[in-house]
């Protein structure tokens, strides 16, 4: 026993980009290794120590019956369970299957679809086990990940504001791409955290961090419509990495069928 908190990183259905963010903490990596014991992190080391763990970082969504069982085991071994990224918090891009027929997809893609064992839906971790904190993003922000780990070490609440991207955009002194350029932008309904990367390059927000709390998507749909976007395109704006988050799933449905909107 070293006395340091044991941290484990687990992967479910995902691209590995969010746990890679941990390795991307180059300047802070040594301090991090000093502060915690990395007990299980297969992307970084083949050393794997058994649980229980003080902090589990969980990436990815649940898409197979096996993973639905495995996440229960992870939860049982972990004092704190923090999920990271759009897959773990909303089901990820692979949750587009939730809007189609996964059986049909496997038959179209695989020579032997009977070898494939998969669930009809891709679901976030919180649909299966209690989660202590959800860190948003596709991928997550490096600074925010460090803040969550630091807050855990200090025993305080992470400072992760649940507000729109517009706050970060304006704080950076950027020019609003919607107002000044007429560019479609999901910033007003999207959870902050990226630092308004896309508006900084004169692009509209893609909604990588999912819906902000209380997002008024009907008002944004109306604006996108006024900007000349078709119902199909508006529905697609919401149909990305956070497609299955309740607010964006409803928005894409609302956008595709505008006559049903309130």
């Amino acid at each position: 026993m070293t006395g340091k908190p044991k941290v484990a990183v687990f992967k479910f259905a995902s691209c590995d980009g969010c746990q890679l963010t941990l390795l991307d903490c180059e300047d802070e990596l040594l301090a991090l290794a000093d502060a915690v014991e990395i007990a299980h992190f297969t992307e970084a080391t083949r050393t794997s120590l058994p649980g229980p763990y003080d902090l589990a970082l969980v990436e990815g969504s649940i898409t197979t019956p096996e993973d639905a069982e495995r996440i229960e085991q992870v939860r049982a071994q972990s004092k704190f369970l923090v999920v990271i990224g759009a897959c773990a918090t909303a089901g990820g891009i692979q949750a587009l299957r939730n809007f189609g027929d996964v059986r049909e997809f496997t038959q179209a893609v695989y020579a032997r679809p009977d070898y494939i064992s998969t669930l009809a839906h891709s679901t976030p971790i919180a649909d299966h086990v209690p989660v202590d904190f959800e860190l948003r993003g596709c991928p997550i922000d490096r600074g925010q990940l460090l803040e969550v780990i630091t807050a855990f070490l200090a025993g305080r609440k992470p400072r992760i504001p649940d507000r729109s991207v517009c706050y970060e955009c304006k704080a950076r002194g950027l020019v609003c791409v919607t107002v000044a350029h007429g560019t479609p932008c999901l910033g007003p309904v999207t959870h902050a955290g990226c630092g308004a990367i896309c508006p900084a390059f004169a692009r509209g927000c893609f909604g990588c961090f999912g819906p902000a709390r209380g997002a008024n998507t009907p008002a944004l749909i109306e604006l996108l419509h006024q900007q000349g976007e078709s119902p199909e395109r508006i529905a697609r704006f919401f149909h990305t990495f956070n497609a299955a988050s309740p607010a964006f799933a409803k928005a894409s449905q609302d956008a595709a069928a505008p006559e049903d909107m309130p």
Partner: peptide, 13 residues
């Protein structure tokens, strides 16, 4: 409120 995005832009500008 039905039109307001509550995005905070008005207060920041």
């Amino acid at each position: 409120a039905s039109r307001c995005l509550a995005c905070g832009n008005c207060t920041m500008v």
